[in-house]
């Protein structure tokens, strides 16, 4: 019996392994002058929840202090300037009136679960006092297969801590990573983040759906094994743009306060 299963599977293996490496392995042609259009359907960039503190800061001309708390997927190794927080700062400065001071700071907590990250929030908020916190989380929890209920509890606590400290909160979920789809079970973490966002009326930036949209449309080839940073830079540029647009929309910044 065992031998039969084995034989049939080995035969199959042979026939399936035949297709060699992917045809066009090269990263999408780097076009330095024209950045790829980061088109997205409107529903991915809109949220019913609002950012009242951001809206007020912009309205009264107070500086907009944004803190991005995230794990390693918030940055690109050795090109931090091209990562999405930096790109978002540039785009926001561009879109908001010149008088509006925008400052984005980044707090990378690599290899920390939502629970471990949330434990640092009280101190972090005392030190930085941001208007808006963008909390990117879920990846470490998914990799370590943390109990989804515990994860939801940790995200809830974290969001509450940030809100109690007087900041608006945007939640950002996991990256769409087709290569690791068979290895990391992502859906429970996406679902639980959506639930927490709904319960606490916090805008959720659906990074997973956005990146999958780009991949499915052929905008980016997220299967690419390329070692170069070009693809990562382009994706982060688009993420930064999308995030800036998302924040502006959720804060309901009127056209008068927006330069375009």
């Amino acid at each position: 019996m065992k031998a039969k299963v084995l034989l049939s599977l080995v035969l199959l293996c042979g026939s399936l392994a035949a297709p060699a490496a992917r045809a066009g392995d090269a990263a999408p042609a780097a076009a330095p002058a024209a950045p790829p259009a980061c088109e997205l359907p409107a529903y991915l960039l809109s949220s019913e929840s609002q950012l009242p503190k951001v809206a007020e800061a912009i309205k009264s001309g107070k500086p907009l202090e944004i803190l991005v708390v995230g794990s390693r997927s918030t940055t690109i190794p050795s090109s931090e300037d091209a990562s999405y927080p930096a790109r978002m700062q540039a785009i926001l400065k561009d879109k908001l009136p010149p008088s509006e001071a925008v400052h984005v700071s980044v707090e990378i907590q690599s290899k920390k679960t939502a629970e471990e990250a949330a434990a640092t929030f009280v101190k972090l908020m005392e030190a930085k006092r941001p208007t808006l916190v963008i909390w990117q989380t879920g990846t470490v929890d998914a990799i370590r297969a943390i109990d989804p209920d515990d994860f939801r509890g940790a995200v809830t606590e974290g969001v509450a801590a940030l809100q109690n400290a007087g900041a608006d909160v945007v939640l950002m979920n996991l990256q769409y990573s087709p290569r690791t789809e068979t290895m990391i079970s992502v859906p429970p973490y996406l679902d639980n983040m959506r639930v927490v966002a709904q319960e606490h009326d916090v805008p959720l930036f659906d990074r997973f759906a956005i990146m999958r949209q780009w991949n499915d449309q052929g905008q980016f080839d997220l299967f690419s094994p390329s070692r170069g940073p070009e693809l990562a830079k382009q994706v982060h540029d688009c993420l930064g743009r999308a995030l800036a647009q998302f924040v502006i929309d959720a804060a309901h910044v009127g056209p008068a306060q927006q330069q375009n």
Binding site: T180, T182, P225
Partner: peptide, 29 residues
């Protein structure tokens, strides 16, 4: 155990051939 071996083979392959800097974190798996 046999299926686990196949799984190991698959992810070892991905681990050695896939080094996209976009996904350094996911590679933590």
């Amino acid at each position: 155990v046999f299926l686990f071996t196949i799984f190991l083979a698959e992810i070892s392959y991905v681990a050695t051939s896939f080094e996209n800097p976009l996904y350094t974190e996911e590679m933590g798996i």
